[in-house]
């Protein structure tokens, strides 16, 4: 019964996050909402593993937490530099003479 209550609360929170993702005026609101909904999805996978009696779901939740973090960092880097292969950091990109940065 406590798992059903937690699942209902998480579903309501995810719906509220989707409202902000649809209304969000800038890109950064949507990135923030994607990160937050990812955390709620990790919690929901964990509680569904308890609710259905499948403890293998904890591995999926752990993996989803990793992918959520990597995805947020990747989206932020892509929209800042426009390229995933570019070295991050302003001073590194300026003084490090790499192979591919002909635009600097």
């Amino acid at each position: 019964m406590m798992f059903i209550a937690g699942t209902a609360g998480l579903a309501a929170a995810i719906i509220l996050g989707l409202v902000r993702a649809l209304l969000g005026p800038t890109l950064y609101d949507r990135v923030l909402v994607v990160n937050s909904i990812g955390t709620m999805t990790v919690l929901m996978i964990a509680v569904l593993g308890f609710l259905m009696g499948r403890p293998e779901f904890m591995d999926i939740a752990l993996l989803y937490a990793l992918i959520n973090f990597i995805g947020t960092i990747a989206v932020l880097k892509f929209f800042r530099y426009g390229d995933m292969a570019r070295p991050g950091g302003r001073h590194i990109a300026r003084e490090g003479g790499g192979e591919g940065d002909a635009d600097d």
Binding site: G6, A13, L16, G17, R20
Partner: peptide, 17 residues
């Protein structure tokens, strides 16, 4: 613990909106 965690998650989502 689960009800207080759900309370904080829903509160954060309301603040997000």
């Amino acid at each position: 613990l689960i009800l207080s965690g759900t309370f904080f998650v829903v509160t954060g989502a309301i603040g997000l909106v």
